[in-house]
């Protein structure tokens, strides 16, 4: 800021008080309108979830009522119990939690180790390793679908937690994030540690890791949600009730047209149980989530 700039503004304001006054009024109206429109946006975005919740508290008769009832009814507990029992919900939620937690943890560990090697060591083939990790960004499951299935089959990992989690653990974005972070740490830290006779692994454990907690939290939140919401991968490599994850298991409850009772209330209760963990993680770990979202996209 130049001193001229800071001085000029108040000088002008005192010289032209009336003009400023008359400018104020339309300005305020504008922000009221903006608030109202933003609130309308929030309402539009929230409506589908609100409506799903409303349906999950109604009886089938209420669900089918015309005009549709937009207020919650009193059958929350029975619908949720029904959904819980009918769809093996505990097992589904457990599987999803395992996939989300294990794959996120695995990704973080693998990425921080390889980023550490890439930043703090010189070794033959470093560039090759770097590019290999980068290229995984361009090979989502969707483009190597049949052959990856075959690999899992050959390993005997169909219907197993290893099959569900290990192939998800390579992560270019997480590796880049840690690399970026290590590069911001002054070289002097590592040099000083080395002078004191601290070896590389000890340096990683006692110096780098304590500095990385914010990155862990941010990445974990984003990766947890990613893992929880996996679809194609678990669909391919699991085919038993016991190994299904919740996003897939939910489908058994969809009342397809032609089936007997359209129990959308039970369906919605199950849907809410399935979406609650990741949404709760976003809401309660908001700060980390936003950090992770923005940094992992860089």
């Amino acid at each position: 800021m130049s001193p001229d700039g800071t001085l000029a503004a108040p000088a002008r304001a005192t010289a032209l008080p009336r003009v400023v006054e008359s400018r104020r009024r339309p300005f305020d109206w504008g922000s009221v309108v903006a608030h109202l429109l933003l609130l309308a946006c929030v309402a539009v975005i929230a409506f589908p979830l609100y409506y799903a919740f409303v349906i999950s508290t109604q009886t089938v008769q209420e669900v089918l009522a015309r005009p549709p009832l937009l207020r919650p009814s009193g059958h929350l507990v029975e619908n949720y119990l029904e959904a819980w029992n009918r769809s093996h919900m505990p097992r589904l939620l457990w599987n999803s939690a395992v996939v989300a937690v294990v794959s996120a943890t695995g990704k973080i560990v693998m990425s921080l180790l390889s980023a550490f090697a890439i930043v703090y060591f010189n070794f033959r083939g470093k560039l090759l390793v770097f590019w290999m990790i980068f290229i995984t960004l361009m090979l989502p499951v969707e483009v190597r679908i049949m052959s990856t299935y075959e690999v899992i089959g050959n390993l005997g990992w169909l219907n197993s937690y290893s099959g569900l989690t290990v192939p998800l653990m390579a992560s270019a974005t997480a590796t880049f994030l840690f690399r970026q972070f290590y590069l911001t740490i002054p070289n002097e830290l590592a040099e000083a540690a080395q002078l004191d006779g601290v070896g590389p692994m000890r340096f990683l454990w006692s110096f780098l890791l304590p500095l990385s907690w914010a990155n862990f939290a941010a990445l974990f939140v984003v990766l947890f949600i990613f893992g929880w919401n996996q679809y194609l991968w678990p669909l391919m490599i699991t085919n038993t009730e016991a190994m299904r994850v919740v996003v897939i298991g939910l489908q058994d409850l969809i009342p397809r047209t032609g089936t007997h009772v359209p129990e959308w209330n039970v369906m919605m209760a199950a849907a809410i149980m399935a979406l609650l963990p990741p949404v709760a993680v976003i809401l309660f770990m908001q700060r980390w989530f936003v950090k992770g979202l923005i940094e992992s996209e860089k």
């Binding site: 550490f116 703090y120 070794f123 995984t136 190597r144 080395q194």
Partner: peptide, 28 residues
């Protein structure tokens, strides 16, 4: 790069590279 060690960096990148090779490059 600060640390000198012949084998360690390979060991550190091994898990990630193994997953990358087996589940990404080979299938692709």
């Amino acid at each position: 790069a600060v640390f000198r060690n012949r084998g360690l960096p390979y060991l550190l990148v091994l898990p990630q590279v193994a997953v990358t090779l087996v589940f990404f490059f080979w299938p692709a």
